[in-house]
Design a binder for these strands. Structure first.
Lengths: 225, 225
DNA sequence: CGGCTAATACTCGACTTCAAGTAATTGATT
DNA sequence: AATCAATTACTTGAAGTCGAGTATTAGCCG
């Protein structure tokens, strides 16, 4: 009965399901898929069975019964314990109360971006923008359909959140692209010059000193480095 | 020399550093910290050494030399290979070009939210909103300072992106809270009734049928379930 | 000059993730 | 009646993640 809780949100999803009623792992997986939770919580079999083991080891859930039909694999039905119920409430509360530090892939990409050339980046971001707009359209239509079918917004709020973030990204990329293509982005001069020196085969430390020399007036910070 | 590439963006960061010049692992770590990349790319020692092994096994980097000073641990200096250079460009391009499916913690929380009571959720989200606003203030101030010091925007663009996402979340939470506290959120009636039945100890399947009966006119979708 | 913190440099092992594999049963189609 | 895809249900192993631990040296303060 190791202390603490698993870190994978899938374990929290398992707890909320077992608070509803006892289930076996495969049923949890189907239920989550049916309710489209797998779009908000990463779900795969390996992880599912392993977080269930982990919850059991910690005494947050326990085996309710094991059954088998014919020669099919055995089904292990689990229930939540009192400790599990408490953990569910605590954990879920924390998710809602405390903003977590996330590391989106695109942020990583942006932070390493200067390793590519300006013009390459422009065309990559244009493609991203198109893709994002297509996805946004799809997302919007799905929300609209859900609404028309009379599905309470309570059950799609997470998709509204996703759309909100997506729209913000679209605006960000569009504005950034605008500044890049119009040449008004402060720093594009440095970037182009770095490209030039790089493609000319100048070694990195020389690039640094050259850039420092050439741009020290525009960007005082370069001197302090 | 296993094919493919590691999936951890930290490995991409390592490649970009080694394209600049040969380095040993600890130096990579310090350089990334110095350039504040660890705010956009999760960095910890264990992962660093393991992605370096993985890159080496795949032939994307190789040992340049090993040195030691006094009785300190040996330093293994690595260089990037031609295959590594290509992989760096391909991978980084993909990060910028193709939106990746992410699973933010808060989205998981929102999708499981109905497991808590309405009033609890309201107070949790109020705390979140306050926290988000404080963090936004800090982030803004840091960007402003960077600007005043003459640091080109090119090198803080990832933080601008972070702020853009954060602002979108703030607006989303504020609006949602507004609808909840004013009672105009469609679905809050169902939610409160579910709370009520749950706290009264009614079993889950009975809650379902009761809710279905009571709300079938407002939300036709409930009938189809 | 002695002691204490910070920086340097990496190791370890417990835990988690994930895709692919296995194997039986149901249902639809030819 | 044969077959073939889809569904049910779980297992496995290779790889990846993470924080804590270890050990040395440099710098600094009184």
């Amino acid at each position: 009965m190791a202390a603490g809780r698993p870190t994978n949100p899938l374990a929290l999803a398992v707890l909320t399901l077992l608070v509803e009623r006892p289930m076996h792992p495969y049923e949890m997986s189907s239920t989550l898929k049916e309710r489209s939770k797998q779009e908000s919580i990463k779900l795969n079999f390996g992880s599912l069975y392993s977080v269930i083991d982990s919850l059991a080891k910690r005494g947050l859930i326990e085996v309710h019964e094991t059954t088998r039909e014919g020669k099919r694999p055995e089904r292990t039905v689990y229930t939540v314990t009192d400790a599990g119920r408490t953990t569910m409430v605590d954990w879920l509360s924390e998710l809602l109360r405390t903003p977590a530090k996330e590391f989106p892939q695109f942020e990583a990409g942006l932070s390493l971006m200067p390793a590519l050339g300006v013009d390459d980046v422009i065309s990559l971001l244009q493609r991203r923008l198109e893709q994002l707009r297509r996805e946004q359209e799809v997302g919007r239509r799905m929300l609209q359909q859900a609404d028309e079918m009379g599905l309470p917004r309570l059950f799609v709020i997470e998709h509204e959140y996703e759309l909100a973030l997506q729209s913000a990204e679209i605006e960000f990329v569009a504005r950034f692209l605008d500044e890049l293509t119009s040449g008004t982005f402060p720093g594009i001069g440095i970037w182009r010059r770095m490209d030039e020196l790089r493609t000319a085969g100048v070694p990195t430390d020389q690039i640094d000193t050259t850039i420092q020399e050439e741009f020290k007036e525009d960007f005082p910070w370069l001197n302090k480095q």
